[in-house]
């Protein structure tokens, strides 16, 4: 696209800036629309599993419910508690929301369709998702209130714990693909046993796919790991003091993060934009549709778990992270690298 704007007579820098801004808009606006629709889907799935109807009033089948909610919070007043640290109180939701959108820069939607095709794409995602914790911690601290503060402390410990195991799980995939570039990782998953696309079909990586799914739930603080907003213990956790758009930004950021984690699941373990079976006619379906289908499937799994599994206790959460996931993922780093030394690099 840079070349196209250069053709219109712009200098290189201007053309690059313009095409990047357009690229950012082309990714961010659909992501926000997807967030609105996926909140609706989440509520519908959750309602169906609880034998309720869910949102069904605004628009056909309640499809416009999220937009009605958005309009409602937009018209509300933002209340800042008088004891709060005002600047940080308002910056915290902005950080959560911005960080949730930033990571989409390196997600490949098709061969070559990616905003920033960088060498260290996976590390970039790890770095950006490690920033996400600041939104929660700052919100909890700046509220100057007890329950949000508890929530902030829980969130920081929880996210650090699960980032460690996510890091090791990612290393197994990177070892197999031989690259940190997300497009290269997707391309490396072609044709297992000659016909299946996806690291998940590899017996050495399949356990990692399951562990990544669970760690992703813990990292995004979704049920059953939503200790940070456990309503029976902490009112609403770090969001207790928030109202109107500030609250909505947390909400949008949280769901954007969930979709991102679903996309990562699809890209790292289930072939990303590749069709599940390596069969020529399936390649006529655009890759972006395969990616969307996989994202939606993993989102269904997330909602399913949220609707059916009770919340963990905090000590159980820490035990799972440090005593089970960390040693197991370390063992698999050892196994995968050993297997590759035996076969590919010997």
């Amino acid at each position: 696209m840079t070349a196209f704007f250069q053709g219109l007579g712009l200098p290189f820098e201007g053309a690059w800036l313009l095409s990047t801004v357009i690229g950012i808009l082309v990714i961010c606006l659909p992501v926000m629309l997807a967030v609105a629709m996926i909140i609706y889907a989440d509520r519908k799935i959750w309602a169906a599993m609880a034998l309720r109807r869910g949102p069904n009033v605004v628009g056909p089948f309640g499809l416009l419910q999220s937009f009605a909610d958005g309009l409602k919070v937009f018209l509300q007043e933002t209340i800042v508690p008088s004891a709060a640290s005002k600047a940080l109180f308002l910056i915290a939701p902005i950080i959560t929301f911005t960080v949730a959108l930033m990571a989409w820069a390196v997600i490949p939607f098709q061969v070559g369709v990616v905003l920033a095709n960088i060498n260290v794409g996976l590390l970039y995602i790890l770095a950006i998702s490690s920033l996400g914790v600041y939104g929660v911690v700052l919100a909890g601290w700046a509220s100057n209130s007890k329950y949000p503060f508890y929530s902030a402390i829980r969130a920081s410990a929880q996210m650090i714990s699960y980032e460690v195991s996510i890091g090791f799980i990612i290393i197994t995939v990177v070892l197999w693909a031989g690259s940190f570039n997300l497009t290269a990782i997707v391309e490396s998953q072609k044709a297992y046993y000659g016909f299946l696309n996806g690291n998940g079909f590899n017996p050495l990586l399949f356990p990692m796919a399951i562990m990544f799914l669970i760690s992703a739930m813990a990292e995004t603080a979704r049920a059953p790991f939503d200790l940070t907003e456990a309503e029976s213990e902490l009112v609403a956790g770090y969001q207790t003091e928030y109202s109107s758009m500030a609250f909505a930004l947390f909400w949008l950021g949280e769901y954007a993060n969930v979709i991102l984690m679903c996309a990562l699941n699809a890209i790292l373990f289930w072939g990303g934009y590749l069709p599940p079976v390596d069969w020529a006619p399936l390649y006529y379906v655009p890759g972006i549709l395969w990616l969307f289908a996989k994202i939606l499937f993993f989102f269904f799994v997330f909602s399913w778990v949220k609707a059916t599994v009770p919340r963990y206790r905090y000590d159980q959460l820490m035990r799972l992270g440090w005593k089970i996931f960390l040693p197991t993922s370390l063992l698999f780093v050892f196994l995968v690298s050993g297997f590759l030394m035996l076969t590919r690099y010997s």
Partner: peptide, 25 residues
């Protein structure tokens, strides 16, 4: 770029969170 990402992951993502954790309390 590798050092930059490590700086963000290790220092911003882990070490500074622990700093903040201690200082907040």
């Amino acid at each position: 770029e590798f050092i930059a990402m490590l700086l963000v992951i290790v220092y911003v993502g882990a070490v500074a969170v622990l700093f903040l954790f201690v200082v907040m309390m």
